[in-house]
Design a protein around this nucleic acid. Structure first.
Lengths: 225, 225
DNA sequence: TAGGATCCACTGGTGGATCCGT
DNA sequence: ACGGATCCACCAGTGGATCCTA
């Protein structure tokens, strides 16, 4: 019942376009799956559903959703006019490697190198089943865009190197930012404090600000503020 | 329904003696739990049951079962005359640290520093529910015993340092031995080969040979072959 | 007999994201 | 608007051990 992986990029894009206009309920039904609930329950379930619908490789960490194509799938909740309602999670940040990781070798660069954006038209307060897939966009950063992402990355990693991760706020970064991930007070990861001492901290992730993804969805080569 | 932790060593020993002579079925019933199946299903379930019955801390890794007492609980299947039917698993071996770990700081020493042995009288082929708790033994290694355990540990770690973990067999060690742990071909851990190269291997654990535990149960200060 | 192979329950960490006060 | 907090599914790894052939 689960579709095979797409044979190539064209195939993937065709399939994604085939989902456009369909509701979450319809997609779930066609896969023989339960319609995901949302709200405070099951925040990531639409993302998982769409992955299955497009034949993405299941649950493979540190690899793109479509490994043979090198393409990452990202759903993004948008309002009726196509504006993102949320920032977009990119990946977890390796807090221990702040001083030895470069943009070139970073996971965040790998994730953003080639993305299939799939807007999910979302009316707040309505059942998830009603949400509808919008027009997909296959995107690779332009040189200008990547330069800014790299600058954000270097800025963030530099701040961690100087003051430790606890001194970093979500205010750093023009398009990329770092915010907490996972339930506060439960998950723990290891990092370094201002004096270089080893400390336990909440896991954090890279996110793309909504103002960047908003511009992107309208013009893939946009360079917004 | 789950007992509170024992307040002190005497309390623990009293409780353990209170289990002596009782069957697995009786203990499960008194805790309001299902009687564990065994055989090829649920090999560790009696151990878990007894932990609960004695108020051990649940599922705490790298800590003794009774942290405030520093005591480790080990069930051990024995025949009608009290002879162990199996070797006893002690703990996982840290393969990456072979050259930097000493007996003094090792997990295996910590685990064996103070053990509450609880024999489980086991007739092969009979239902697990019928198994009966034997006479508990609270044990700490004598100086002579610890010297041999340390020698085994050093021997094993030395062999790993020389030939890598893949050259190590369960034949090494007088009382302690190293054997595979977890389903072959599934779990993987990282180690070093003969040339110092990083390799993936099956996880392994320290076990106490049955000839040692057999002597121990008859005479806590025994120094068998 | 015992070395090598294997089994189940549980949970912490990861990947998928959205919630919600200020 | 947005920074900080939080939610669920899934799975590999760990802890509890015993099985099973040669």
């Amino acid at each position: 019942m689960t579709p095979a992986p797409p044979v190539d990029t064209i195939d993937l894009l065709h399939r994604a376009r085939g989902l456009a206009g369909r509701t979450v309920a319809e997609i779930a039904l066609s896969l023989g799956l339960a319609v995901p609930e949302l709200g405070t329950r099951g925040k990531g379930r639409i993302g998982n559903l769409v992955e299955k619908a497009l034949g993405a490789t299941a649950g493979s960490a540190a690899a793109p959703d479509f490994p043979h194509l090198g393409i990452e799938l990202k759903t993004i909740p948008v309002d009726g006019s196509g504006r993102p309602l949320e920032s977009t999670f990119v990946c977890t940040i390796s807090l221990g490697d702040a001083d030895t990781t470069s943009w070139e070798t970073s996971l965040v660069r790998a994730k953003l190198a080639h993305v299939l954006w799939l807007p999910i038209v979302t009316a707040r307060g309505r059942p998830a089943a009603e949400r509808r897939v919008g027009t997909p966009l296959l995107w690779q950063p332009t040189a200008d865009q990547e330069a800014i992402l790299r600058a954000d990355f270097d800025d963030i990693m530099g701040r961690i190197g100087v003051g430790g991760v606890e001194g970093l706020t979500a205010r750093a970064g023009r398009w990329l930012q770092v915010r907490p991930k996972a339930r506060t007070g439960r998950a723990r990861t290891w990092s370094f404090g201002p004096e270089g001492e080893l400390i336990a901290t909440v896991p954090r992730g890279f996110y793309l600000r909504a103002r960047f993804t908003q511009a992107l969805l309208r013009d893939p080569s946009a360079v917004p503020a």
